[in-house]
Computed example of a mutant assay.
Amino acid sequence: MSTSTPQARTTYRVRGRTTPDGPAHIEAADQTIPADTAWAQPATGQPGPAELLAASLAACLLKNLNRSGKLLPFRYTSAEVDVVAQRQDTPPKFTGFTYELRLVTNEPQRRIDLLHHNLRRYGTVYNTLAATCDVQGRIVTTPPPTEPS
């Protein structure tokens, strides 16, 4: 009979701070992120909880793109992602996320499909959201500009 030890879990810590009339800030890693946590007030222009969650999905996709770029290897010269979060009011919850990842690459379509598969399979934030709501997206590619002869 073999026994295996459970994998160690990675722990992430953030700290949020606010006052009743003041701005809110989230401390994550070595950064301070302003956050709009005001209720029934004009928007502050800072990201609120919904934008921060959508930003987490964007960061997850980009981080896994970099990971896949090293492991596959997959070559690209730049990447950009747009994420849209859909929420409902009653009961309050997110119902879905959509994304479009735009890459400048010469990789063939089969490698782009493999990359997309890996982004969906190995993304922690992606998988967490996909377990609770619909997450759909696509990769759009553009070849790098050719250098003049």
Rank of each mutant, 00 (worst) to 15 (best):
L119Q: 05
R110G: 07
A24C: 02
R138V: 10
R15L: 12
L119T: 02
I33P: 00
C60M: 10
G69F: 02
P148I: 00
N64Y: 04
N64K: 05
R75C: 03
E100T: 15
N66Q: 15
H25Q: 03
R87K: 14
R15H: 12
I33W: 05
C133P: 12
N106M: 13
G48E: 11
T141A: 09
Q41E: 08
G22I: 05
L103P: 00
R121W: 12
T95E: 14
P34R: 08
H25F: 02
P6I: 01
T11H: 15
T18H: 10
D30C: 02
Y99V: 03
E147G: 04
E147P: 03
P20V: 14
V135S: 13
L62N: 08
G96R: 11
T142H: 05
Q41A: 12
D82T: 09
Q136E: 14
E80H: 07
D36I: 11
T142N: 03
E80D: 06
S4K: 10
M1D: 09
N127T: 08
P92N: 08
R102M: 06
T5C: 04
G96I: 09
G123T: 01
G16K: 04
S68T: 09
D21T: 04
L119G: 00
V140N: 02
I33Y: 03
R121V: 09
L72V: 07
P6K: 04
I139Y: 03
E147N: 11
T37R: 06
P23I: 05
D36E: 12
R121Q: 15
R15K: 09
P6E: 04
I112E: 11
H117Q: 11
Y76R: 10
L101G: 00
A59I: 04
W39F: 06
N106D: 13
D82E: 14
P148C: 02
G45V: 05
S56F: 08
A130Q: 00
A85Q: 01
V83C: 07
L129K: 06
C60Q: 06
D82K: 12
Q7C: 13
A8R: 11
V83Q: 01
S4Y: 08
T90H: 07
A24F: 00
N66R: 14
A40L: 13
T32D: 08
L129C: 11
A58L: 13
P145W: 03
T98P: 11
A35T: 01
Q41H: 10
A24G: 00
Y99P: 01
A55V: 10
K93P: 14
V84Q: 12
S2K: 07
P108K: 15
A131W: 12
T11C: 15
A54M: 09
T5K: 11
A85D: 00
G45L: 09
L101H: 00
R102Q: 08
H25E: 04
C133G: 15
Q7D: 15
R15E: 12
S2N: 05
K63V: 10
N64H: 06
A50L: 08
E27L: 13
S2D: 07
D89H: 04
V140I: 07
S78W: 11
P42A: 01
P143I: 15
A40V: 10
R102Y: 02
K93H: 15
P92E: 09
T98N: 13
Q88I: 14
T132C: 14
F97R: 06
P6R: 04
T146C: 08
T141F: 09
Y76P: 06
P23S: 11
L114V: 03
T19S: 13
F94N: 07
F94V: 12
A55P: 07
